[in-house]
Design a protein around this nucleic acid. Structure first.
Length: 507
RNA sequence: CGGGGUGUAGCGCAGUCCGGUUAGCGCGUUACGUUCGGGACGUAAAAGUCGGAAGUUCGAAUCUUCUCACCCCGACCA
């Protein structure tokens, strides 16, 4: 039996990481570019991953007392105007609707017609439009808190786009809450950051670092921004979720006021928090290998793919009957409250091709079922996260008995592997020369995979951060909440510092 | 918005510098046959306004001018 020499993905991570990322998405049929600049088509396999994320997160939101609602796609220009920093942060990258009709000109071409009195902005985020509603809904302290989430699409007219990581239109959820006190809003901000951490680590098998963003990376208009940061296999950081404490900034802008118990009129305290389809990009870059996607069982569109093998009608009948039995037995099983999803690939294409198709799609368990298996009451099982992709012949009953355990173990293995990678590439650095060295590729022309998460001291001065960014394209990813205070000197200027932060290159 | 590049079949490309029969190649697609427990092979077939417009010419994918779109590198970013 010939060993496979080449990888399923035409480019390896070592050779060209960005290209590898695109090829994995293509091979896994997650998404593709559309004819609309910067906008992607999310294909069924990718969208099912998103649906699975939605289902898990939605439950977590509801378990923490939130409800869903929906607000308009269009925002009146004046709303966006209300918060100065917010304007500054978003004004440059918005799609604007200026007309409300199309007419046919003398050359037979469609042209915009019917100019709007006031242009409408396609939401880049919904603080302002939701704030307008909240202002009406909140009158008394008895109306608080408001804990609402919306699942929506937003548009940010980005200059450079990449599938899932940065697209002009993307899908996300945005939570917007209103509270009577600073403390309560702060608590909400941390609570949701934690929800994201738990979701990322338990469901996506993606280890993340919770922390506060530096001033320069803060959400426009927020008092403080917190993020979860994950390490990709090129050792770059990907901001995977954010939770913002907005103080009273947006409440003042939108006039969200209430009468307190004491009868005083006060501005409310608000938060917002979101994760997007970017998480799919995180999933791809954190776990996949040179043979394509590797999906953690809890998020995979299917847990198992069954490949029937037969040569003639007799064998087909026997194999089909055997498979139907397996499906029936497994239909009772649940992995974290989710039914086990089995896909039977009965397409009339070559076996080898079919094998690789599902490897590239990242299905956790691939099972070949042929006449020999029917005879022996066995199965040929391949675990996707096994680097060797070794075929194991297992008794059918034993397989089914252990199935939930097997999938849970795979989920843990995928997390542990990512965690190990991150730990190995997280380095305490106290010397700027070392810092510079690790973030500088040996080959400038075609940079090899380099860098790390550098745990270094930072004085908190924006100027040091900017200088480092300028020189090395490295930024403060966040200031970890778990990081204990320690005496040290700023990696750049040498001023006293009380805390280590995470420096890294990022997406 | 500054610098560079590319538009030829569904996808990836050759041909363009130096104009010349019916515009090719690989992959994919379709049909048939042989194969089939690790990415098969053979035969045949379908598929192209050469990004668009104007011009030069007996003749333009090829030369000229204009134009559109996209990609890469910067600045900006979930």
């Amino acid at each position: 039996m010939a060993e496979f020499k080449k990888t399923a993905i035409p480019v390896t991570r070592e050779e060209d990481y960005p290209q590898w990322y695109l090829e994995v998405i293509k091979a896994g049929e997650l998404a593709e570019n559309s004819d609309v600049r910067g906008c992607m088509v999310i294909k069924p396999w990718g969208y099912t991953i998103w649906e699975n994320m939605q289902r898990e997160l939605d439950q977590m939101f509801k378990d923490t007392g939130h409800v869903n609602a929906y607000f308009p796609l269009f925002i009146p220009l004046e709303y966006l105007q209300q918060e100065a920093d917010h304007v500054e942060g978003f004004a440059k990258e918005c799609a604007v609707v200026t007309h409300h009709r199309l007419s046919v000109n003398s050359e037979g071409k469609l042209v915009p017609d019917g100019k709007l009195e006031e242009p409408l902005v396609v939401r880049p985020t919904s603080e302002t439009i939701i704030g307008a509603s909240y202002a009406k809904w909140v009158n008394s302290y008895r109306d608080l808190p408001i804990l609402i989430n919306q699942w929506a699409n937003v548009v940010r007219w980005e200059m450079r786009t990449r599938l899932f990581l940065r697209t002009a239109e993307f899908l996300w959820q945005e939570g917007h809450t209103v509270h009577a006190t600073r403390e309560e809003a702060m608590e909400e901000t941390y609570k949701m950051l934690n929800v994201y951490k738990e979701f990322a680590e338990k469901v996506l098998a993606l280890p993340v670092i919770e922390g506060e963003k530096s001033e320069s990376e803060r959400f426009p208009g927020a008092v403080s921004t917190y993020s979860i940061e994950a390490m990709m296999q090129d050792k770059k950081a990907l901001q995977s979720g954010t939770s913002h404490f907005l103080g009273q900034n947006f409440a003042k802008a939108s006039k969200i006021k209430f009468q307190s118990k004491e009868g005083k009129e006060e501005f409310a305290w608000t938060t917002s928090w979101g994760v997007s389809t970017r998480l799919i990009g995180a999933l791809v870059m954190a776990h996949s290998d040179d043979n394509g996607l590797i999906l953690p069982p809890r998020i995979a569109p299917a847990h198992i793919v069954l490949l029937p093998i037969y040569k003639d009608e007799n064998e087909k009948q026997a194999v089909t009957k055997y498979i139907d039995g397996i499906k029936k037995e497994i239909s009772e099983l649940r992995l974290f409250d989710r039914k086990i999803v089995i896909h039977v690939d009965d397409r009339d294409i070559r076996g080898g091709e079919k094998n690789w198709y599902w490897i590239k799609k990242g299905v956790p368990l691939k099972i070949e079922v042929g006449p020999k298996d029917v005879e022996k009451n066995s199965l040929a099982v391949v675990k996707r996260n096994d680097p060797e992709l070794k075929k194991n012949f297992i008794g059918k009953d034993e397989f089914i008995k252990n199935l939930i355990g097997t999938l849970s173990t795979m989920q843990d293995e995928i997390f542990e592997k990512a965690l190990k990678f991150r730990n190995e590439n997280t380095i305490e650095i106290d010397n700027y020369d070392d810092f510079k060295k690790i973030f500088t590729p040996k080959n400038e022309e075609k940079p090899e995979l380099h860098g790390c998460f550098a745990r270094s001291h930072w004085c908190g001065n924006r100027k040091c951060e900017e200088a480092i960014k300028e020189e090395l394209k490295v930024t403060v990813r966040n200031i970890p909440l778990a990081e204990k205070e320690s005496e040290g000197k700023c990696i750049y200027c040498g001023s006293p510092s009380r805390k280590r932060v995470i420096f890294a290159k990022s997406y």
